[in-house]
Protein backbone atom coordinates (compact mmCIF):
# COMPACT_ATOMS: atom_id res chain seq x y z
CA UNK A 1 0.00 0.00 0.00
CA UNK A 2 1.16 3.52 -0.68
CA UNK A 3 -0.05 6.82 0.71
CA UNK A 4 -0.40 10.24 -0.85
CA UNK A 5 0.38 12.71 1.93
CA UNK A 6 -0.80 16.29 1.52
CA UNK A 7 0.68 19.15 3.54
CA UNK A 8 -1.00 22.54 3.34
CA UNK A 9 0.86 24.68 5.87
CA UNK A 10 4.07 26.64 5.75
CA UNK A 11 6.80 24.66 7.55
CA UNK A 12 7.82 27.89 9.27
CA UNK A 13 4.56 28.18 11.21
CA UNK A 14 3.45 24.60 11.68
CA UNK A 15 5.08 21.22 12.27
CA UNK A 16 2.89 19.36 9.76
CA UNK A 17 5.62 18.94 7.13
CA UNK A 18 8.14 17.69 9.71
CA UNK A 19 5.56 15.30 11.14
CA UNK A 20 4.68 14.07 7.67
CA UNK A 21 8.37 13.46 6.89
CA UNK A 22 8.75 11.61 10.21
CA UNK A 23 5.64 9.44 9.72
CA UNK A 24 5.88 8.61 6.02
CA UNK A 25 7.38 5.52 4.45
CA UNK A 26 9.74 4.99 1.56
CA UNK A 27 7.76 4.85 -1.67
CA UNK A 28 5.07 7.26 -0.54
CA UNK A 29 4.35 10.60 -2.17
CA UNK A 30 4.18 13.98 -0.45
CA UNK A 31 2.21 16.71 -2.20
CA UNK A 32 2.70 20.26 -0.93
CA UNK A 33 -0.39 22.42 -1.46
CA UNK A 34 -1.62 25.89 -0.43
CA UNK A 35 0.88 27.44 2.04
CA UNK A 36 2.57 24.05 2.18
CA UNK A 37 4.39 24.89 -1.07
CA UNK A 38 6.83 27.10 0.87
CA UNK A 39 8.28 23.80 2.08
CA UNK A 40 9.28 23.08 -1.53
CA UNK A 41 11.50 26.15 -1.84
CA UNK A 42 15.29 26.17 -1.98
CA UNK A 43 17.68 27.56 0.63
CA UNK A 44 15.41 27.42 3.68
CA UNK A 45 16.08 25.99 7.13
CA UNK A 46 14.05 22.92 6.15
CA UNK A 47 15.12 22.36 2.53
CA UNK A 48 17.89 19.89 3.48
CA UNK A 49 15.29 17.75 5.27
CA UNK A 50 13.03 17.85 2.23
CA UNK A 51 15.91 16.89 -0.07
CA UNK A 52 16.84 14.01 2.24
CA UNK A 53 13.25 12.73 2.04
CA UNK A 54 13.41 12.88 -1.76
CA UNK A 55 15.93 10.01 -1.66
CA UNK A 56 13.14 7.49 -1.01
CA UNK A 57 9.89 9.47 -1.33
CA UNK A 58 8.42 11.48 -4.18
CA UNK A 59 7.88 15.14 -3.34
CA UNK A 60 5.49 17.19 -5.48
CA UNK A 61 4.07 20.69 -5.23
CA UNK A 62 0.79 22.02 -6.59
CA UNK A 63 1.80 24.33 -9.44
CA UNK A 64 -1.15 26.77 -9.21
CA UNK A 65 -0.31 27.35 -5.53
CA UNK A 66 3.39 27.77 -6.36
CA UNK A 67 2.62 30.31 -9.07
CA UNK A 68 0.06 32.16 -6.97
CA UNK A 69 2.76 32.76 -4.37
CA UNK A 70 5.48 33.76 -6.83
CA UNK A 71 7.72 30.84 -5.86
CA UNK A 72 8.14 29.17 -9.26
CA UNK A 73 11.84 30.00 -9.60
CA UNK A 74 12.67 28.92 -6.05
CA UNK A 75 11.48 25.31 -6.13
CA UNK A 76 14.02 22.65 -5.14
CA UNK A 77 15.31 20.80 -8.19
CA UNK A 78 13.63 17.42 -8.53
CA UNK A 79 10.34 18.44 -6.97
CA UNK A 80 7.64 17.70 -9.48
CA UNK A 81 5.03 20.36 -10.15
CA UNK A 82 1.51 19.07 -10.74
CA UNK A 83 -1.80 20.76 -11.54
CA UNK A 84 -5.18 19.80 -10.07
CA UNK A 85 -5.54 17.01 -12.62
CA UNK A 86 -2.14 15.73 -11.48
CA UNK A 87 -3.36 15.92 -7.86
CA UNK A 88 -6.33 13.73 -8.85
CA UNK A 89 -3.98 11.28 -10.58
CA UNK A 90 -1.78 11.06 -7.47
CA UNK A 91 -4.88 10.35 -5.37
CA UNK A 92 -5.88 7.49 -7.67
CA UNK A 93 -2.35 6.06 -8.05
CA UNK A 94 -1.90 5.81 -4.28
CA UNK A 95 -4.11 3.63 -2.07
CA UNK A 96 -4.95 6.25 0.54
CA UNK A 97 -4.82 10.01 0.89
CA UNK A 98 -3.62 11.38 4.22
CA UNK A 99 -4.06 15.10 4.88
CA UNK A 100 -1.69 16.57 7.45
CA UNK A 101 -4.07 19.30 8.66
Amino acid sequence: MTILHTVNKSPFEDSSLESCLRCSKAGSTILLIEDGIYGATEGTIISDKVKAAMADRTVCALQPDVEARGMKDKIIEGIKLVDYAGFVDLATENDTVESWL
Binding site: N8, I33, E34, D35, L62, P64, D83, Y84, A85, F87, V88, D89, T92
Partner: peptide, 18 residues
Protein backbone atom coordinates in the same frame (compact mmCIF):
# COMPACT_ATOMS: atom_id res chain seq x y z
CA UNK B 1 -8.16 28.08 0.95
CA UNK B 2 -9.53 24.61 1.74
CA UNK B 3 -12.87 25.07 -0.05
CA UNK B 4 -11.17 26.54 -3.14
CA UNK B 5 -8.66 23.68 -3.31
CA UNK B 6 -11.45 21.15 -2.86
CA UNK B 7 -13.47 22.81 -5.63
CA UNK B 8 -10.55 22.72 -8.07
CA UNK B 9 -9.82 19.10 -7.13
CA UNK B 10 -13.46 18.06 -7.61
CA UNK B 11 -13.68 19.83 -10.98
CA UNK B 12 -10.48 18.16 -12.16
CA UNK B 13 -11.73 14.76 -10.97
CA UNK B 14 -15.06 15.22 -12.81
CA UNK B 15 -13.21 16.34 -15.97
CA UNK B 16 -11.26 13.10 -15.81
CA UNK B 17 -14.47 11.09 -15.64
CA UNK B 18 -14.28 10.16 -11.97
Amino acid sequence: QASDTAYNFVKAALDKGH
